[in-house]
């Protein structure tokens, strides 16, 4: 492994670790104002939606994003599985099987 790769990994690890840990140290010692608690209470639903929608789109610099159709198709049975079973495992497995089938029949 070249020093270039090694140093890159170490520094990338450091900034990632700091992003993870500093908020814990700050919150521990600071009384969080109420508006911030209210703001942060929307982080879960907002960030999970953003992660999901990102996977449905494809970025093309300087253009409107494209739609990742295979992911959209596979999402439909996965969402249905969630509504029917309320089980995380069932959603994941349904989605994976749906994607495998889509690839098998050549739609993805």
């Amino acid at each position: 492994m070249s020093p270039y790769i090694f140093v890159t990994i170490l520094l990338c690890g450091l900034v990632t670790w700091l992003s993870r840990v500093i908020p814990f140290a700050v919150i521990k010692n600071v009384t969080v104002p109420r508006w911030l608690i209210s703001f942060l209470s929307f982080v879960p639903v907002a960030i999970m939606t953003a992660i999901f929608v990102e996977s449905l789109l494809t970025y093309h610099a300087g253009h409107w994003p494209g739609v990742n159709l295979p992911n959209v198709y596979a999402s439909l049975p996965a969402i249905l599985a969630g509504i029917l079973t309320k089980s995380l495992l069932a959603v994941v497995i349904t989605g994976v099987v749906a994607m495998a089938v889509l690839r098998l029949v050549g739609w993805a």
Binding site: A74, A78, A90, M99, R103
Partner: peptide, 17 residues
């Protein structure tokens, strides 16, 4: 279809949330 596992997981977690 394993690449879809992550997407599926977030669908499930978002819905349950």
């Amino acid at each position: 279809g394993l690449d879809f596992a992550v997407v599926g997981m977030f669908i499930g977690l978002l819905y349950l949330q």
